[in-house]
């Protein structure tokens, strides 16, 4: 009986040698899982953005309510904050990989703070819109109510990702400081954070700029 046949007879799915087979991608399984999650989540955001495009193209009375001040300017600041947080995340990963634990924790903290600032600006914008009469079912300008539905759905899903990212960064920073997590955990969290940033690179132009008042001839 071969070794693998013996293992199967004993109830094991694979021999030790087989279970330690090298990844064809040359990365840790946790990192691969994060990549797979990111691809699946990209399809989710793609679907919701295509849905927004479909509803917009099919609505003859679509509203374009966003003035440069405050909304587009606020969106630019939020974009700059998120891009900067990606840079600080890169520094966090580099510090962690170099074994500079304190610096890694500090850069993770900066990244989480920038993420929090993004969320605060976003929520402030939402509450201003609520005060003007916008909701998922109402449009104070009299146009299609689908504007609110799509706007709050898309930005809400993204904000949920940012919030989850801030929580993850905080947990990883605390665990990394205490030695419970290593540089690989920081790097995997970084992948997620950069992904959240990249999604915003589509949300800002499609949902904000394409709805700027006076933007389209």
């Amino acid at each position: 009986m071969t070794q693998s046949e013996m293992a199967l007879t004993m109830g094991h799915g694979a021999t030790d040698e087989e279970s330690h087979e090298q990844s064809p991608f040359g990365i840790q399984s946790s990192k691969l899982v994060m990549w797979l999650f990111i691809i699946a989540d990209s399809a989710t955001f793609g679907a919701i953005l295509f849905g927004y495009g479909y509803l917009r193209a099919g609505s003859p009375n679509w509203s374009r309510p966003f003035a440069f001040v405050p909304t587009i300017l606020n969106g630019m600041v939020m974009t700059a904050i998120l891009l900067t947080s990606s840079l600080t995340m890169l520094f966090a990963v580099a510090a962690a990989q170099a074994g500079r634990r304190e610096a890694g924790v500090r850069w993770l903290g900066f990244t989480a703070l920038l993420g929090t600032a993004f969320a605060v600006l976003h929520l402030r914008e939402w509450f201003n819109m609520f005060a003007e009469g916008w909701s998922t079912a109402t449009n104070p300008l009299g146009g299609s109510a689908l504007f609110g539905s799509t706007f709050f759905s898309i930005t809400g899903l993204h904000l949920l990702h940012v919030t989850a990212g801030v929580v993850a960064l905080t947990v990883i920073a605390i665990g990394f400081r205490r030695g419970r997590f290593d540089a690989a955990h920081v790097e995997t969290t970084g992948l997620y954070w950069h992904f959240v940033d990249i999604v915003w690179m589509f949300v800002f132009p499609l949902v904000y700029l394409m709805n700027a008042r006076g933007g389209i001839s």
Partner: peptide
């Protein structure tokens, strides 16, 4: 805007997410 967003995403994925430095199979 879509073209510029795709360029931004490409740069982000390849450099910030380090896909450029991983094995091509990934």
């Amino acid at each position: 805007l879509l073209t510029l967003a795709v360029v931004e995403a490409g740069i982000g994925v390849m450099f910030f997410m380090h896909l450029k430095y991983e094995r091509r199979t990934l």
